[in-house]
Structures are given as structure tokens and as C-alpha cells.
Design a binder for these strands. Structure first.
Lengths: 132, 132
DNA sequence: CTTGACCCTGTACTTAGGTGCAGGGTTTAT
DNA sequence: ATAAACCCTGCACCTAAGTACAGGGTCAAG
């Protein structure tokens, strides 16, 4: 198995080099083996790890949560239901955000509805509504 | 019209004192009159201004955007349609966020669906899916 | 007239997720 | 052999929207 320098890894996983070092500091990526020169050396495993992080991020997980997910993943004592529970919690989280955004949307739509779009700002019903 | 100290204003508008000074630094609140001692003195107008900011924040506007909204509000040359346009832009912004969250939700639901919830993590389909 | 509550400025810190750079050392290609 | 490209550490910086002091001055009540 050929080893990757951090630059190669960054290209393969499509992330910034600094981001890899940042993930290492955050404990999301294990400390890699080092050459005598101090250069980091990675195996292909690390690409998967970074993809895991990216995908989890896309699903709305924070790096902190991803860390927890990785701990579950690496602990053989973990049951799959624990992972499932995390996913369900995130689902609720996302639903809460959607609900909140829908409330904003509704309020904004009501405001734009009462605004004719003509007339001076001094009589703008949107601005008036925001003040009281 | 009685004048308010910053502490009174903070209570009336239900914000932190530091937040008021922060808004002043950001230009969201005009620099108030000062007593000889240097103490800030506010009129009731400022309560309305802070409420405006809070309400706009609740609708999803950033402080930067609120600043723009306030500029429109204070410029007599502004037409109401410009305000309306800002509201519509924010509406699109919010809709985009909702759409994105719904995508996450869908992906998460699909993942939890394939997970029986039993079995070891080593065979967890959720974790597996995140890796590839 | 003193004590506690209030206010001032200026600065640093917070969360999240990075990015950028200075000042070095190492590898690789020519 | 040398230049370009790469890597190292450690630190500072970024956005957003504040919060938290420290070290001082002021105000109001008893």
C-alpha cells in the first residue's frame, strides 16, 4: 500500500491541507505515521475517514457530533441502535430548524403581502410592522 | 420626554447593555447624547429602534442586512418597493435553506430506514453509507 | 459621606469551522 | 547542485453576534 503525503491526501479527498491538520487537532483523524523528516504519511484509510466526515457534515452533523459518531464506529461494544439514535436526533434537529424557517417565511410573506410596493418609505407597512 | 440611561433602556428593550453598545459600534443605533459625565442618554425612540432590530433578526435578517434596511428607512428618497425587494430576497434565502434542510432530512430518513437498529456497529448500514 | 449600584473605555474571549502566513526544513526534478 | 515544490510548527486571522472583564469614574439613597 503506497503512502500519501498530506498534499496528495488533500487532493484525493478534495479538502484543504490546513483542514486535514485541523481535523487531526480536533481528533477526527488519527495522528498519522511520520517520516524521519517529520512529514505525515497516510494510508488510503484516511481518505475514507475524510469522506465520512464530509458526508456527515452534509447531513448536518457538527464536527463535535461527527467525533461522537466516530467513537461509536470504533468501539466494538457499540450497537447499531446507538448510531441510529444519533441519526434520529439529528433528524429532529433538522425538523426543528425547518419549522423555525417556515415560521419566518410565513411572517415575511404576510409582510410583503400588505406592501403595495409603491409609495414612500415613510408609509412602508413592512418597516412599520418591524417597529412595534 | 424623560431620558433613559443605558441600563434602563436595556431593561425596557430586553437586551443586554453590552449589546446596545455593540449595536452603536455597528452603526445600528445612533450615537446618543451624553451627559457631562459621559453617560449615554436615550429617548424612547431608541426603544423602537432596538425592537426593529430584534424583529428583523427574528425574520432572519443579519445585522448587516438590518443596517441596510435602516438606511432605506432613513432615506426619504427610498421607495417602498426597495424594502419589499429586500424582504423578497430574504424570502428566497429562507426558501433555499428550507430546501437544503429537506434534502438532509430525506437523506437521513433513508439512512435510518435501512438500519434495523439491531446488530453490531461493524455492520451498521448508516456508518457504511457515510464512508463511500 | 459613604456605600452600592450604575456607567465609562478598551480589550479579550466565545462558538464553529476553518484559512493564511512566517520562518524554517525536505524532496524532487532538472 | 540547485530551484521549485512540498512539508513542518505555531500563531494570527476570519465571520457573526455578541459577552465578559479590568480598571476606572459617577450617581443616588440613607
Amino acid at each position: 500500500m503506497e503512502m500519501l503525503t498530506i498534499g496528495k491526501l488533500a487532493k484525493r479527498a478534495d479538502v484543504n491541507i490546513e483542514t486535514i491538520r485541523y481535523y487531526e487537532r480536533r481528533g477526527l483523524i488519527p495522528e498519522p505515521h511520520r517520516r524521519d523528516s517529520g512529514y505525515r504519511e497516510y494510508s488510503d484509510e484516511t481518505i475514507k475517514r475524510i469522506l465520512f466526515i464530509k458526508h456527515a457534515k452534509d447531513l448536518g452533523f457538527s464536527l463535535k457530533e461527527i467525533n461522537e459518531l466516530l467513537s461509536l464506529k470504533l468501539d466494538p461494544g457499540t450497537s447499531c441502535s446507538e448510531v441510529r439514535q444519533k441519526a434520529e436526533m439529528k433528524l429532529e434537529d433538522i425538523e426543528g430548524k425547518i419549522k423555525n424557517l417556515r415560521k419566518m417565511k410565513k411572517a415575511l410573506m404576510e409582510l410583503t403581502k400588505v406592501c403595495s410596493g409603491s409609495g414612500p418609505v415613510s408609509e412602508c407597512p413592512i418597516l412599520e410592522a418591524l417597529e412595534k
